[in-house]
Amino acid sequence: MKFENLKMKSTQTTANDQVIMTKIEPVIEIINLKKSFGLQEVLTNVSLNLINGENLVVLGKSGSGKSVLIKCIVGLLNPEEGTIHVLGENLSTLSSDGLGELRKKIGFLFQSGALYDSMTVKQNLEFPLRRIKKNLSEKEIEDKVNEVLENVGLTHALNKMPSQLSGGMRKRISLARTIIVDPMIMLYDEPTTGLDPVTSDEISSLINDVQKKYKTSSLIITHDIKCAHSTADRIIMLQEGEIYKEGKVADFDNSSDPFIKSFFN
């Protein structure tokens, strides 16, 4: 069922039902996902839902298939088996134009930041905006750039090149570039990797701020427990390409499972 249809259905119900509908509405629905590279199976029968408005953290050791999972969601990798529905659209049946349209509603924060080296911060921020929101005037583009830079606290970096920025600043600018197009879903690939504890905390609180301000649904891939604690509404733990446990943060904190304990202690 298309996302728009789901929304239409919700408007026909009562106000209370509507709240429940929007809360349980999955914006991402993954069923029995399988992905392998050569003979190595990276994801095995992974099924998960991202509910509208929630922060879902996917935890796991390095090499457990977290990044592959998130890249399958945006169509950068094609799974061998299984289905992925994003905002009601089945990824496997979408044309390249359809996929392009869907991607306009998804923000993706890359592990490395992936800022364009040959462009200034301003040009980096304008790049997706000019292509996704083509009707904006120069004034509106400038205002939007200043707004997102203010949100990440880096207004002074407007004319800097990515090479002049620290790791934390690059992550913030990358986050600004992602939110500048007002995405409905945010996908974070290891947002705190390689950062010091203070900057990691800042990025974690930025993730929460973005969720509150832009009303996004977020899928956060990480192995940083502190980040998971401060951002997660729900956690899914992956091990060797399979879902090991799913639950609230407290379920993981109180778990006696040795593998989970090794992560959370």
């Binding site: 349209e101 991607r103 998804i106 993706f108 800022l115 364009y116 080296d117 790049f127």
Partner: peptide
Amino acid sequence: ELGSMKVTEQIDAMEVSSTN
């Protein structure tokens, strides 16, 4: 240039932001 853009995921970032 394109090789380093591929390695640092800049090409993926471009694709994800709906730019061919």
